[in-house]
């Protein structure tokens, strides 16, 4: 084994699936039976952590895990069983019941008063809540926009150009200090958190793992490119107003300039990205492949469903 660390540590197991997968990656045991995936809670800690670990092999990998295991056929077979369980549950729980235009219009209406996490943090959030929120969100934001880059080779023309332009902005427009993942690390420093990639995986609650897995699932499978675009649109459209509330929370609590800047940058950037993703990415993709409208809509409904579960979980924890 390499004397220096080659990635984050494997997380602690949360059940038979995650124990089997992490043991296999350490070359210490057999893979779990795919039947265990078919019977698992599709949104539970065990399946979501095991799936997260499988997907992480495509991002940074884990310390002490052989890189070849990224494309290990037996591991991919177990992953496929978990993905099938997850995706089947999502299609059941986040059904497409309206047209794409109707769903987009719904996202573009802003309530005068809301009840979600960003409203709670704006009105009553204390530094301990903001730290807990940032630690959870770090599972995504330290690889912000990475899962969406996988869709680029599957797009063409206007959709590709629009998506690439947004991703360029997400990745700092050519400047390392402006990469959004770096801006989030700066926020974490302001909040006194450890910015090491993967540091808070063990603390990651099942709904947060589910959200990151949703992006990885949509990003890694070409057949789900419409859902990936829908997911991305949902994130960009809802981001600006929520980021304003979070910026206000950071300011009110004195979290620090970098913590505030991360969210004010997202207010401004995502007001642009929202326009480009609707006009060029969705508009261009539908010109090329009109049959993908339902998949794009599913990406939006699935994202709202998963985000709502995360919000409910955090608010339940904080208001207990």
């Amino acid at each position: 084994m390499s004397p220096h660390r080659t990635g984050p540590s494997l997380p602690r197991a949360r059940g038979v699936l995650s124990a089997g997968v992490t043991g296999y990656l350490r070359d210490e045991g057999a893979l779990p039976d795919p039947d265990a995936a078919r019977n698992a809670d599709p949104y539970g800690d065990d399946l979501q952590l095991a799936l997260y670990v499988c997907y992480e092999l495509h991002y940074r990998g884990f310390d002490g895990v052989r890189p070849e295991l990224e494309w290990d056929p037996p591991l991919l077979a177990v992953r496929a069983a978990m993905e099938d369980r997850f995706l089947t549950a999502l299609r059941h729980d986040a059904p497409v019941e309206s047209s794409l235009d109707e769903v987009l219009d719904g996202l573009l209406v802003e309530p005068v008063r809301g009840t979600g996490v960003s409203w709670f943090l704006q009105d009553r959030g204390e530094l301990r809540h903001l730290r807990a929120y940032a630690a959870q969100r770090s599972l995504y934001h330290l690889k912000e926009a990475d899962p969406h880059a996988w869709v680029l080779p599957r797009l063409s023309g206007r959709a590709k150009a629009g998506m690439a332009a947004i991703e360029y902005d997400e990745f700092g427009g050519g400047r390392a200090d402006r990469v959004h993942a770096q801006l989030f690390a700066d926020l974490m420093t302001d909040l006194g958190l450890d910015t090491t990639y993967g540091r808070y995986l063990d603390e990651g609650c099942a709904p947060m793992l589910t959200l990151v897995n949703l992006m990885s699932l949509f990003g890694l499978h070409r057949r789900l490119r419409g859902a990936l675009v829908g997911h991305f649109a949902a994130v960009e459209i809802t981001s600006s107003p929520a980021s304003r509330r979070l910026a206000d929370a950071m300011k009110r609590t004195g979290a620090g300039p970098a913590a505030e800047f991360f969210y004010t940058e997202h207010v401004e950037a995502d007001a642009v990205h929202e326009q480009v993703v609707r006009r060029d990415v969705i508009g261009g993709l539908l010109e090329d492949e009109p049959g993908l409208a339902a998949d794009i809509t599913f990406g939006i409904t699935a994202t709202s469903f998963v985000e709502d579960r995360l919000g409910d979980r955090l608010l339940t924890d904080w208001q207990a």
Binding site: V109, E110, T115, T264, V267, E307
Partner: peptide
Amino acid sequence: RMYPWCDTSHRRRTKPGEGPRRSAD
């Protein structure tokens, strides 16, 4: 609030209890 840049404040507003269900962001 970030004039001259858009911050999506132009969006239509709904009062509690009206309008479509949306993500709890």
